[in-house]
Structures are given as structure tokens and as C-alpha cells.
């Protein structure tokens, strides 16, 4: 593997969990739900995936468990915010605090154990191409899934009836309700989708990125994914661009250190968070874009008046 290939591989690895978590949150937000619990769903996906893979020895079972854990967490959020009409911001925070605590508790039994690594899936023929071979066709299933899901979400939201219903729900839930759509059910489904991808993102961290369990191993990636959704102004394509840009800057920081430039490791470690803030500020230069694209009912509770 050449140096450039290695760099590109690590960039994709850094971007994949962000892309997955962000694309699911994007769908939830397009339906009008702000779920700040991404970090909590992600970390539960990470421990769920790791634990299932360790116990069963099967990485694919781990992936399934990661998705399941994310969906489970998201349904908790959906029940509170949709059925019980609780405050979405506070409930999302609760989901994150709860997830971080519970994963730490479950994870105590798994700390320091060797993980099961998700094997790369080689595409016969294509994987042997120089440069693009290993980078594009030598990844594991979750990386492929992240790209496929992004394309799928972009297509569904823009081109299908389901997408139209989701956008209508997020744009004006009263109208969607008056047209006969079940706003609550649509939102339940979108929240669950967000939970599934966040769980998968967590599973990627503990099964592929660093196949082991470390407490708080998501390290704020769920929050960065939330920022990415805002940064993309709710467009799936721009979420992908943002995630890869972010991965690039992240990895470049590490390489700068690698070539011997003397930077405090703590400064490098805090770079992703500073970049996120900078990106949000840079975006604000175009407030109109944000204003036009923000789902009008984002974060607003909806109670059907029968």
C-alpha cells in the first residue's frame, strides 16, 4: 500500500462514522425532529456492536446489534418526544447522558478485550486497480453502506412520494396532518432511521475503526455529526462533502505531526472541535441559505387534535 493510499483510507475511515450519523439525523430533522441524542445512540451502537461481536465471534452480528442498539435508543427518544410531547432539546440531552452512562456500565466487562474486526470486502478485479482499487473497492461493508445510504436518502427525499411526505411533515405538520398523513408515525419512522445509522456509526468505531471498547470512544463525533447537518443546510450531498472534508482536515492534522512538526498533541486533538465551530461560523456568512432550508417545524412539538 502506498503512502497516498494509506492517507485516503484513513480519511475515509475518519469520515464514515460522521457521514452515517449525520445522514440519519438529517432525515429526522427533515421530518421536523431535532434529536440531540446522536452521541448517546452512537455510543450505545459502539458497545452493542462490540459486545455482540465479542460474544458471538461474528462481526456481522455485531453490526446488526449496533443498528439494533441505535434503534432502541431512538425509540426511547421518539416515545418521549412524540407520544409524551416532551421538550426535544432536553430529551436529546437526556438520551446522550443516559447512553454515555449505560455504555460505560455495560462496557466495564469488555474493557481491554480484543475486538472482532470487520473484514474488508474486496470487489474481484476492481480491488487490484492501482490507488482507486484498495481505496474505493477494498473497504468494509459499513463504508459501502454509508455511501449507499447517502445516495438513497438523497434520492428518496428529492424524488419519491415518501420523501415528499417527510418534507411536508417537517415543513408544516398541521398541513401534513390535514392532508391525512400521520405526522407522529412519520416522525417515529424518521427518528428510528436516525437511530439505525447512528448505531451503525458507533458500530463502525468499535468494529472497524479501532476494534476494541474504550469508554466514551465516540469522543463528541455525534455532536460533530449534528453540526454537519446544519453545515450542509439539510442537503444529503453536502453532508457527504462536509464529512469527507472534515475527515481530510482531521487526518491532515495527524500527518502534520507525523512529519515532525512540533505541535502539542492536545492542540491536535482539539482541532476537530475548533474546526466544527469555525465551519459553523463560516456557514453563517450565508444566512439566507440556512433560513430557506431549515425545516420550518424543526423542534416544534405536534399534538394531533383528533
Amino acid at each position: 500500500m502506498t503512502g497516498l493510499e494509506a492517507i485516503l483510507m484513513t480519511i475515509i475511515a475518519a469520515a464514515t462514522p460522521l457521514l452515517l450519523a449525520a445522514i440519519g439525523e438529517l432525515v429526522a430533522e427533515r421530518s421536523g425532529v431535532l434529536n440531540l441524542g446522536v452521541e448517546g445512540m452512537m455510543i450505545m451502537g459502539a458497545i452493542g456492536g462490540f459486545a455482540a461481536a465479542y460474544v458471538s465471534g461474528s462481526a456481522m452480528l455485531g453490526v446488526a446489534a449496533a443498528v439494533g442498539a441505535g434503534v432502541g435508543m431512538s425509540l426511547l427518544f421518539a416515545f418521549l418526544t412524540q407520544t409524551l410531547v416532551s421538550n426535544q432539546v432536553a430529551t436529546g440531552l437526556a438520551l446522550t447522558l443516559f447512553g454515555l452512562g449505560l455504555s460505560g456500565l455495560i462496557g466495564e466487562a469488555f474493557t481491554g478485550l480484543p475486538g472482532v474486526k470487520l473484514p474488508p470486502v474486496h470487489v474481484p478485479g476492481l480491488s487490484d486497480l492501482p490507488l482507486v482499487g484498495p481505496v474505493l473497492f477494498g473497504q468494509d461493508v459499513i463504508v459501502y453502506a454509508s455511501v449507499a445510504l447517502t445516495a438513497l436518502v438523497a434520492w428518496v427525499l428529492a424524488r419519491t412520494r415518501i420523501g415528499l411526505v417527510i418534507r411536508a411533515t417537517g415543513g408544516n405538520h398541521h398541513s401534513a396532518h390535514a392532508l391525512g398523513y400521520n405526522v407522529i408515525a412519520v416522525r417515529y419512522a424518521c427518528i428510528a432511521f436516525g437511530g439505525a445509522t447512528a448505531g451503525l456509526a458507533g458500530g463502525y468505531l468499535s468494529l472497524a475503526y479501532t476494534p476494541q471498547w474504550i469508554e466514551n470512544m465516540t469522543a463528541g463525533r455525534g455532536w460533530i455529526a449534528l453540526a454537519l447537518v446544519v453545515f450542509s443546510t439539510w442537503a444529503p450531498r453536502r453532508v457527504a462533502v462536509g464529512a469527507y472534508l472534515f475527515g481530510t482536515v482531521w487526518i491532515m492534522g495527524l500527518y502534520v505531526q507525523g512529519v515532525g512538526i512540533d505541535i502539542a498533541p492536545q492542540l491536535l486533538a482539539s482541532l476537530p472541535y475548533l474546526i466544527t465551530i469555525a465551519a459553523l461560523v463560516a456557514l453563517s456568512g450565508n444566512r439566507l441559505l440556512t433560513k430557506v432550508n431549515t425545516p420550518a417545524c424543526l423542534g416544534q412539538p405536534f399534538v394531533p387534535d383528533r
Binding site: A94, L97, F98, G101
Partner: peptide, 10 residues
């Protein structure tokens, strides 16, 4: 403790 705290907020 953390789990109970999260549960409590929920």
C-alpha cells in the same frame, strides 16, 4: 450512578 442520573432526567 450515571445511568440512574440519565434515567432520572428521562
Amino acid at each position: 450512578a450515571q445511568v440512574f442520573q440519565g434515567t432520572l432526567l428521562f
